[in-house]
Design a protein around this nucleic acid. Sequence first.
DNA 1: GATATTCATGGCAATTTTTTATCAATCAAT
DNA 2: ATTGATTGATAAAAAATTGCCATGAATATC
Lengths: 301, 301
Amino acid sequence: MNITLRQLRAFLAVSQHRGFARAGEHVGLTQPAISRRIRELEDNLGVRLLDRTTREVALTATGQRLAGELARVLETLDTLLAETRQAGEQARGTVRVASSPTLSASLMPACLADCGQQYPQVRLQIVDQVQRLNLDSVQSGEVDFGLVVDPQSPPGLDGVSVGSDPFVLVLPASHPLAAQASVGWAQLAAQPLVLLDGNSGSRALIDQALAQHGVSGEVVQALGHSTAVFRVVEAGIGISVSPQLALPLPAGSTLVVRPLLPEVRRQVMLVRRSGRSLSPVAEKVWQLMQATLGGLLSGNG
Amino acid sequence: MNITLRQLRAFLAVSQHRGFARAGEHVGLTQPAISRRIRELEDNLGVRLLDRTTREVALTATGQRLAGELARVLETLDTLLAETRQAGEQARGTVRVASSPTLSASLMPACLADCGQQYPQVRLQIVDQVQRLNLDSVQSGEVDFGLVVDPQSPPGLDGVSVGSDPFVLVLPASHPLAAQASVGWAQLAAQPLVLLDGNSGSRALIDQALAQHGVSGEVVQALGHSTAVFRVVEAGIGISVSPQLALPLPAGSTLVVRPLLPEVRRQVMLVRRSGRSLSPVAEKVWQLMQATLGGLLSGNG
DNA sequence: GATATTCATGGCAATTTTTTATCAATCAAT
DNA sequence: ATTGATTGATAAAAAATTGCCATGAATATC
């Protein structure tokens, strides 16, 4: 009872090739199949579209009008479908990735490079924000996905770990602890600490690690960005626990770096909305970044 | 491998009703059927169109673009198909009917009246020509069909008889033969005859009837229209054999009419191109005229 | 007339499609 | 927490469709 595209396509083929058998060849069907489809279409429409004598096929007035319009409509439809198909294959367009400040500086450049090489048509745009905002941006769909640090139980987000990054101690070369090759977390007790502030994804992890080792460090300064933290430490205000990825230190710095034992690592993760799929392009970039970051961080610990 | 309208319609329904089961209700299918169609469509396109969580269905970016465009395209298509369907049901438009002069005056007025009453939206246009031209016009498709007189073996035309019409003798009241209640064909021998000319459909029949009765009437005048014939007869130039339908005689005429025995009738026929269908409107008018003329001519003989 | 070409038709097989149950996952409310 | 309701996915059986083959019927051409 319903008109199908195949009936319409058969009709167009017949009207173009002026013959059922010829139309069949072009469509890949036998003549009886065409015959039936045309009859079905005519029955469905309640109108005779083709006058068939045994010698030739001619469009009726109604058929003529239909054929003309139909050709346009079907072409539009085919174009639309082809475009949709391409959307899945084509790697082009813009992908927005939210990234935490430290990671934007340390990991994203390599991703940008790889992406530019692999998918020249893709514009990979970094949205550099503090972790809390990043998660919101991913959740709201404002960005395609995010590169963040160990978000505990992300609400409505799916994440995959791409590697981990240890925390290290950053302190002036003149500091007593700098004499050791490595420093234990417990030794940080009573030390004045300069840390990233609570908007950073790492801060909660650092606090947790300190608490775990019974240390209630005195945080004398909390800052938004590692660069600022290093400056303050350099000024002798205190010492800092920093993600290794925040290194290297600025050139000419008088600071030194020491491993913190036992090693505490933060997970670096890619996160996306759960239950929602990425756009085809974003999916490709997601895969690419997973590979790129896996390579980078495996070498890193 | 081929995308069907049903898949596309299912997709649109889902995108509108935000749910497979709800979409199914509106389309008249069960939920699994919808589920399958959507999957087929996505497989065919190679793109995910809908993100389904167990709680809600959301369009992907690709799906969103497709849904918007598709709604327009399918609406266009549906409109086109509806129009085509209507073309078959709707009785409106112009129908051109070729008609021989005598018939245009005698039979067509009733047809015009009936048609105007039955199908007010239809414009029934009479193409009043001599028979020969009428047949050509029908053949070429210049008119939808024709109302003609007994065309022997019409080439490429199909005809149906709608009745017949006897030939009668028309002559001055003062003529010797006018004294008889009826006249035999044989009595026309040696009479000067005023007849319709060869372009008329009746002329060949009259000649044939005369020959059949061994009469080689002397045709002193051949004219194109019955009105002219009557005038010439009235002028005393000769007597005439005329189709009864050419009557009544002009008011105030001094002529009289006598039956010709044995009765010879001409067939009145509707003719159309063989192998070609009429437009839906023309088909309706064809049917109507067949009925109307059948009624008129059955009363007539 | 005989032949060739063209569309229509009936029967049978294969494929496709739909439905009927069922499952699995999630959200909401007790 | 557990339960209940809602939603989409899945498997198997049933129903419908679709295709091809072998014909038939009509007509134009030689």
